[in-house]
Design a protein around this nucleic acid. Structure first.
Lengths: 194, 194
DNA sequence: CCCGTCCTTTTACAAATGTTAAATAATCAG
DNA sequence: CTGATTATTTAACATTTGTAAAAGGACGGG
């Protein structure tokens, strides 16, 4: 159980998605816990089953996995962003991915089992999380588009345009793997643009 | 309103995801309509708002969009697969994508507005569609992985492995754009493998 | 059956990206 | 502040992929 005041910003974000009754807010809050993780430490390790829905309260985190021994970044989460390993959470399989704090980060954790039980009593909570997942789905479809048939330069230009925060706060090696290109290639592109 | 018998296969697929009461099934069915589309014709055109959730009853369809005048295939839908233009349906914006039948196809269409209204009366229906979207989300995350940091050859090999049906029923030019590579590149890869 | 259209492959070449290694630059711990 | 570590850039070269054009193949309509 966590203090309402501490989570005001987070609750506000949820409210924009789907307003909840006071009771429903309290029920969700009763499941929330705050989890501080230091920079470069992992919240979740590769190979474990993911049974928790996370949001970033403050800080910055990523999901990454290993491909031929090289880290590939799948996703970045900023303040109030959802961060879940969907391929494990929704399937029950062990995840091939890790969640890592890129800055000192405080996560909000909501254990999935009790949350799903809440859905039975409170359809409005289920609706909220349905919409959260819908948004995540739309974002992922959009991200696929930005990668699918685009050159390295196009991907970088689009990222600059759509997510200028990324370049400010995230190291270039992580940006590169997020774009699906090598650090060297990204460096080259930046040199050419300049 | 559509006949229960005609949609037995479809209902069975839904049942595997989330069993519904008879009343709920009837309520969903009352919204379903069958839409036959001939090979190479579009069910939905680029630029229109998407207000319908589709499934493929029989046949084969794709979602595609234009990038620099070239068609890029985002998604293929086989029998009983969901096919939605999420970036329009869940945002209300006009879609940049078209839905096209690649074979003579019968779609099942469920208008979104009445369906969302049903959710208010029947949480179990909302749950069903929450899970449908969760599955679509997981599939999309997985698909992004297969593209993000993989060579053309790796993408093709993985597709052969995971979706052998694709190669059997879909023309190579569509496969190529789905993989985010050119037809020529795909031809080259096939020649090398052989 | 034949013609025309569309799909697929092949070729030759250009451009983009990966790889390896080294040189700078930035950051952090002590 | 200084040395060590880590991040970023640059360079040279190899490989992959794209582009354009042509040649086969497959297929459907008349």
């Amino acid at each position: 159980m966590t203090d309402k005041g501490q989570l005001a910003g987070f609750l506000d974000v949820l409210y924009q998605i789907q307003p909840l009754s006071t009771e429903a807010v309290d029920a969700v809050l009763s499941l929330c816990s705050l989890i501080p993780i230091r920079k470069n430490q992992n919240l979740q390790e590769i190979g474990r089953r993911c049974k928790t829905i996370y949001f970033v309260k403050e800080g910055l985190a990523r999901i990454f996995y290993l491909k031929d021994g090289v880290e590939v970044t799948e996703y970045f989460a900023f303040e109030n962003d959802l961060i879940i390993r969907a391929e494990s959470l929704f399937t029950g399989k062990p995840s091939k991915k890790a969640i890592q704090a890129l800055e000192n980060t405080v996560f909000i954790g909501i254990p999935a089992e009790p949350l799903f039980s809440l859905f039975d009593q409170s359809p409005e909570i289920e609706r909220l999380f349905r919409k959260v997942i819908e948004q995540a789905y739309v974002a992922t479809v959009h991200r696929m588009e930005t990668i699918q048939f685009h050159s390295a330069e196009e991907r970088y230009a689009q990222l600059l345009d759509e997510k200028p925060d990324f370049i400010k706060r995230i190291s270039l090696k992580h940006i590169a793997s997020y774009l699906g290109i090598t650090q060297v290639s990204l460096s080259r592109i930046r040199a050419a643009v300049r």
